[in-house]
């Protein structure tokens, strides 16, 4: 890495400096979040990016106040189940549309696309009533199924594009080799669109993990709450504890940042693969 930078042309160096500057600006909110999380109550409202001394008291407070492990577990269960279901449902549907070209699937696909245009806010009330009727309030399925329904259309768009990009002779070769549609799906199609699957998985993970609105409404019992609901209690109208608020926000963000660092390469590859064929 250092040798690369040392060998950079001046023009390249300028570009990198520019990008670095943008990155720094971009990072300010994150840095501010961590910084406030580590302030004592006296310095919390200081209008500077960094203060001294640092304290971990806020973290201790939020960890003591809340059964965080149980919240995390709830978030993890809901998120992982959502990701798996979205992957399963959307890859199968994309396969039916793009590869098998089953009659009627293109119409279904068009209908599915229209759901992308509906804002979440307008869905909350009908969803709440629906979930109540089903008795799914304070149950995992009450979050998982809506999340899957909301996440699947986008995943289908991505996966369908990838499957249509794949050479169709490969699917024909699979037919000649004797594959049933199921076998073509498992042995040929899924491996071919793996970058897209990784992308969809990460994307869905982030969206689901961060979702707050629906979780707030569906999970009212303390044992069922997901982590994103926790920060609420530290920002009231008359009483606020910014230090603790930002401490819990930092804690929530950590797993995502960890995940992203782990799979960053695959994520970027997934983003690019659809754009540039080859």
């Amino acid at each position: 890495m250092t040798t690369r930078i040392a060998g950079l042309e001046p023009a390249n160096l300028t570009v990198h400096l520019g990008l670095g500057l943008v990155l720094l600006l971009w990072m300010v909110p994150e840095a501010y979040m961590v910084s406030i999380a580590m302030r004592a109550p006296e310095t919390v409202f200081d209008p500077t990016l960094f203060t001294w001394p640092l304290t971990f008291d806020n973290f201790v407070t939020v960890i003591k106040d809340n059964p965080l492990p149980s919240f995390f577990l709830n978030s993890l269960i809901v998120t992982v189940a959502t990701v798996i279901l979205v992957l399963a449902v959307s890859s199968l549907f994309a396969f039916a549309v793009a590869v098998l070209r089953l009659p009627g699937t293109t119409v279904l696909y068009a209908v599915l696309l229209t759901t992308l245009m509906v804002p979440m806010a307008s869905l909350v009330l009908p969803l709440a009533i629906l979930l109540k009727t089903f008795g799914w309030v304070n149950r995992y399925v009450g979050l998982i199924f809506p999340y899957v329904a909301l996440g699947a259309p986008f995943a289908v768009v991505i996966l369908k594009a990838f499957m249509e990009d794949a050479p169709k002779e490969l699917f024909e070769a699979a037919r000649v080799d004797g594959c049933t549609p199921w076998q073509t799906f498992i042995h040929v199609t899924l491996p071919l669109v793996r970058p897209a699957l990784v992308f969809v998985a990460i994307w869905q993970f982030i969206v689901t993990w961060n979702e707050f609105f629906l979780a707030l409404i569906v999970m009212t019992e303390n044992e069922m709450k997901t982590v994103t609901i926790v920060p609420m209690q530290y920002s009231g109208l008359y009483m606020a504890n910014p230090g603790a608020l930002f401490a819990i926000l930092t804690i929530i963000a950590l797993p995502l940042i960890g995940l992203y660092v782990l799979v960053q390469r695959a994520f970027v590859r997934g983003l690019l693969a659809g754009a540039v064929k080859g």
Partner: peptide, 14 residues
Amino acid sequence: GIAMVFQSYALYPH
């Protein structure tokens, strides 16, 4: 009972 050789080879890349 046929086998086909495609112009693009159509080998499974993975």
